Computed example of a mutant assay.
Amino acid sequence: MKLNGLKEEWDELPQKGIFPEDIKLRMWDVVASATINKRRNIYRSVMAACAVLLISLAGFQFYFGFQSVKTAGVVTQTYPQDIRLIRLSDGTRVWVNENTQIEYPEKFADNERIIKLKGEAFFEVARDTTRPFIISSGNIKTTVLGTSFDVKAYGNIAEVNVRTGKVKVESSQNAVFLERGYAAIFVPKENIVQKRKALVIDPEWKNSLIDVDGLSLEAVIEKLKTNHGFTFKYASEDLKKLQVKGTLDTRQGVPELLQTIAFALEITIKPVGNDTYVVSR
């Protein structure tokens, strides 16, 4: 493949302006280098790794801002096949499903935590009894102090499913209180929410991303081994202690997952046959 053709393929990846220019240039340099050296199999795995670099690199949060009179905020928009995990200023973690928009302040107010959601997201809310966490999502409002739950809000379709803790869900006409294993369903004709048994409390799409932030390389590899069969060898013991930041996309295969880790940590992970890999500097 010619370099121009590869550049066109790279540009088609779902970056959608979420990468800073310096990171995009670094990723493209790696892809171009692999291609110039005629490593067709390698550059495809590098492209896969770079495509998910957003959720693998430490210390980066990519967003475009919206300004208000009182505070600056963040808008995150996802696209088809684009699932992300974001961390809010209070420690709350949010898995954002594809085709979803979420708005939140860079720093929450002293008396409340308010965000807006269009689409679907799974929340693990950091507990704070002095500041309720409020999600405005179309026809419903969800209020919690600290819990985990899934919220869907697509037009007149609105639903909240609770995995842990207690949640209050309101429409303009009524309110229901939910605990683990229950859901609130919005009924458009009556403009009310109804309490029901939840069919799903841990959505399958959320499991596409695993949070490895702060784990050692050894711990991350062991976590991956629970669902994938492979052998991993270390050139030196100190490599086991390297700290991984961010999130891994499990929709990739083992080679792509390991390439993502290698790129983020600036190390080398090579296959040596029979599903065995060796890591070195």
Rank of each mutant, 00 (worst) to 15 (best):
K2L: 04
N4P: 02
W10E: 00
G17R: 08
I18K: 06
P20S: 01
P20H: 09
E21I: 10
K24T: 08
K24S: 09
R26S: 13
W28R: 09
V31E: 03
S33Y: 03
A34F: 05
K38R: 11
R39Q: 15
L53Q: 04
F66E: 14
V69R: 10
T71E: 06
A72P: 08
G73N: 14
T78I: 08
T78E: 08
T78M: 06
P80A: 08
I83N: 04
L85K: 02
L88D: 00
G91N: 15
N97H: 07
E98Y: 00
N99M: 13
T100N: 00
Q101F: 08
Q101L: 04
K107Y: 12
A109E: 11
N111Q: 05
N111V: 12
I115S: 09
G119F: 14
E120V: 04
E124T: 04
A126Q: 06
A126F: 07
D128R: 10
R131D: 07
F133G: 13
F133N: 04
I135Q: 08
S137D: 07
N139W: 11
N139Q: 02
T147I: 01
V151R: 12
V151W: 06
Y154N: 15
G155N: 05
A158P: 06
V160S: 13
N161P: 05
T164K: 10
G165T: 09
G165D: 03
L178W: 12
R180A: 13
G181F: 07
A184V: 02
V187E: 11
V187W: 01
I192P: 14
Q194A: 08
K197Y: 13
K197V: 11
A198V: 03
I201K: 10
P203M: 15
S208D: 14
I210A: 02
I210D: 03
D211R: 00
D213G: 12
D213H: 08
V220C: 15
K223Y: 00
K223E: 12
N227M: 00
H228A: 07
H228G: 02
F230V: 01
F232T: 15
E237C: 12
L242F: 05
K245P: 01
G246K: 01
T250R: 07
G253S: 09
P255T: 10
E256P: 09
L257R: 03
L258H: 00
I261C: 00
L265K: 09
I267D: 11
I269E: 04
T276M: 15
S280I: 05
